[in-house]
């Protein structure tokens, strides 16, 4: 299920996690750009024709909910997948995004949910 060159923006403050996630997405055929915090993620989001966002929730400075809200303001149609190590984020945050999943569910789940964003 090779995804032919969709541009995905990954934002996470965990360097190793981000690096590994990037490799998984690239193997599946995505083009990936990464950012280590919300602020630089937002500027990449604006400057690149990003087709989907894989966003970490817990980040210093601006958390994933805030970043998602700003992204929705700028490009409301770009789908967002929110990743979090926490269970039970408040609904006003989860309803902002297209998909919400917890870390640790594994790469196949991530790829499947990300892929579903492009099927619609």
């Amino acid at each position: 299920m090779s995804q032919s060159g969709h541009l995905v923006l990954c934002v996470d403050d965990e360097t190793v996690g981000l690096q590994v996630r990037r490799m998984i997405l690239e193997r599946s055929g995505y083009k990936v750009i990464t950012a280590l915090d919300g602020k630089s993620g937002l500027s990449l989001f604006e400057s690149h024709p990003v087709e989907a966002v894989v966003l970490d929730y817990a980040m210093p400075g601006m958390h994933g909910g805030e970043v998602a809200a700003l992204m929705r303001e700028r490009k409301p149609n770009v789908p967002i997948l929110l990743l979090s190590a926490y269970l039970g984020l408040p609904p006003d945050i989860t309803k902002l995004v297209n998909v919400y999943m917890t870390k640790g569910e594994g790469a196949p789940a991530l790829l499947e949910k990300l892929g579903s964003l492009f099927e619609n």
């Binding site: 996690g17 590994v20 190590a85 926490y86 640790g104 790469a107």
Partner: peptide
Amino acid sequence: AATIAHEIHNPLDAVVNLIYL
């Protein structure tokens, strides 16, 4: 607990993903 869950989940997520790779 929240912090710790995060601290444990993040590395575990990376490990799970590495194993997948």
